[in-house]
Structure formats: structure tokens, C-alpha cells
């Protein structure tokens, strides 16, 4: 916990107690006084406070956790849960998009094609990865890799983590809308199993562009919606300041999306979020993927596609007068 420099305001009470605990321990060792009773009480209080705060996170707090810079990113997951990963580059048309990565690998004994948006951690790598915002080339590269997987009957796994598709001039010139649209259509009838997992931010079309799967999951403290809370605030409230209200209104958490029938399940994170214990989420994700690969690789392709289309066709709520 102490290694995480980025502390959120709502975590402050926990860190205040931790500071007191450290002071107490320091006094104990310096002055040779026995404070073990008080230390135990404080440790118990800290744990209770953590449980209390982290199990009552509001939606905006979850959005903040989903963006924590010490969360594992796509390549971290790939390194941790796969073997024999070979990264494959380029869309074969324009260039290689650094905000979208992918390649062949194995998860357990299963050959897979694993694809995802990639963010950077420091200023330089963030710019290199374009903040995880793909251009059309990224979506076309992802589609190229999915088609390659389809050709050899290899299941596709996508890891979603993007603040949105890049809204740039060249992105428009090269057909950002068309690139995403094409992926939606092709993924819905891809003749191989597809599993999608939101590992951080699931912002709108940029996320959905690699998000059509037989199974779609979200990690516990991630968000997935039609728009970011900040942009929603700026459009509907005409100010950037109502992002907390917007996050609540959008019902964008993993729990909300499960209730709305948009995702198939939630993959648990350690107390406080994935950045507190990477190995915890690596294990949880790998376990979920292996159990789905067991089932999906045994399902015949027409059934797989029919179920996939039916699943998405059921999404939405309407009324009649």
C-alpha cells in the first residue's frame, strides 16, 4: 500500500491512521515501551476502515481507481498470465498503432490471440501510447489479428482500457467511425470464441470497438459507458464540475453493468483496487479466462455466433404506449 504514491482523497483517513501506526511503532522501538495493545487496536481499526471505505465506493471513486497509474495495463496482464507471447504489429495499410497491442500467446495450454489498448505510465510512454486512445489503424490492426485468429480457430481475448478513440484530425480523415463500425460487425460474426474484459476505462465506441464477445467481463473497479463522466457533465450540465453527478447518473460501474445485462460477470479486485496487489488480479483474470476457454472451445461455431448475436440483441429496454 505504501508504494502507491497516488492516494485519493477518500483514502486519506486510512493513510492518517497508517501514519499514526508508524509513529506508534517508532515510539515503541525508540523508547522500549510496550504499546503492542494499542498497536493491535489501531491495526484492527485500519482494517475496519479500509473495509468500510472500499466496500462503499461511489461511482466517481471507482472511476478514479480505474485510472490509477499503478494499475496493471494490457502488456502487464499479457506478461503475467500468458506464455510464448509474440507481439504482432501493424494494420498492413497505414502504420502500427502503439495504443493497441496484440499477438499470439498461450494461456495455460490454450493458444490465444490477445489484444488490448495500451496506456503508458510516465510522460514519455503515455505520449508514445497516445494515452491509450487508438487511431483507426489500431482498430484495423485489432481486426487483422482477429481475422488471423479466426483463420486458425484460435480464441480471441481483448483487454479494454481506453479513455476513448482518438478524436483527432487524421483519425477522422482515415475513418475512425468506419473502423470502429467494421469491428462491431465483424466481431459479432467472428468464427472463433471471443472473450472481452474491461481492465480499466471502457469509454464509449473506442472501448466497444474491441468489445463484442461471447463473454464480456469487467474488473471490479472499472467503468464502461457511452461517455466519460467529464464529457457527460460538460454536455448536459455545461460545466466540467458535475462529473461526480454524471458518474452516478450514467450508472457506469461493473455492478451497474451486470444489473443492466451488459456484462456476463465481474472479476474481483483486491481491497482498494488492482494497484494494491497485481498478482491478485492476474490470478483472478487467468482463472476466469481458463474456465471460459474450457467451455467456449468446446462449443460449435454456429451456436457460438448465434448465441453472441442473441445476447447483444437482447440489450436495451423499451416501453409501448
Amino acid at each position: 500500500m505504501e508504494n502507491n504514491k497516488q492516494i485519493f482523497e477518500f483514502e486519506r483517513p486510512i493513510y492518517d491512521l497508517i501514519t499514526r501506526l508508524e509513529e506508534m511503532k517508532a515510539i515503541t522501538s525508540e523508547n522500549q515501551v510496550d504499546m503492542s495493545g494499542a498497536v493491535a487496536v489501531l491495526e484492527k481499526n485500519i482494517l475496519e476502515l479500509k473495509n468500510n471505505i472500499y466496500s462503499n465506493l461511489n461511482r466517481w471513486q471507482k472511476v478514479q481507481i480505474s485510472r490509477h497509474t499503478n494499475r496493471p495495463y494490457t502488456l502487464d496482464y499479457i506478461e503475467a498470465i500468458t506464455t510464448e507471447f509474440t507481439e504482432l504489429f501493424g494494420d498492413r495499410q497505414v502504420k502500427d498503432d502503439k495504443a493497441m497491442v496484440g499477438g499470439f500467446a498461450r494461456i495455460g495450454e490454450y493458444p490465444v490471440m490477445i489484444i488490448g489498448q495500451q496506456k503508458g505510465r510516465d510522460l514519455k510512454s503515455r505520449q508514445f501510447r497516445n494515452f491509450g486512445m487508438p487511431n483507426p489503424e489500431g482498430y484495423r490492426k485489432a481486426l487483422r489479428l482477429m481475422r488471423l485468429a479466426e483463420k486458425f480457430g484460435v480464441p480471441v481475448i481483448t483487454l479494454i482500457d481506453t479513455p476513448g478513440a482518438y478524436p483527432g484530425l487524421e483519425a477522422e480523415e482515415r475513418g475512425q467511425g468506419e473502423a470502429i463500425a467494421r469491428n462491431l460487425l465483424e466481431m459479432s460474426v467472428l468464427k472463433t470464441p471471443v472473450i472481452c474484459v474491461v481492465i480499466g476505462e471502457g469509454a464509449s465506441g473506442g472501448a466497444l470497438g474491441i468489445g463484442i464477445g461471447d463473454k464480456v467481463y469487467m474488473l471490479e473497479h472499472t467503468w464502461y459507458s457511452v461517455i466519460s463522466p467529464e464529457s457527460c457533465s460538460s454536455i448536459l450540465w455545461r460545466t466540467w464540475e458535475k462529473k461526480e453527478l454524471a458518474a452516478e447518473a450514467l450508472k457506469l460501474s461493473a455492478q451497474d453493468n451486470l444489473e443492466l445485462g451488459i456484462i456476463d460477470g465481474i472479476i474481483p479486485e483486491p481491497l482498494g483496487g488492482a494497484h494494491y496487489d497485481h498478482q491478485f488480479v492476474f490470478n483472478a483474470l487467468k482463472e476466469q479466462l481458463l474456465s471460459d476457454l474450457d467451455v467456449l472451445t468446446k462449443t460449435d461455431t454456429p451456436t457460438l455466433i448465434q448465441n453472441r448475436i442473441e445476447k447483444f440483441s437482447k440489450m436495451g429496454v423499451v416501453d409501448y404506449i
Binding site: L184, Y224, S225, L250, K251, F312
Partner: peptide
Amino acid sequence: GALSLMQMAK
């Protein structure tokens, strides 16, 4: 919200 987004997929 996300239900609108899913109409694109649907």
C-alpha cells in the same frame, strides 16, 4: 448510458 452504447453492437 451503456445501454445506448450497446445499441451500436446490437
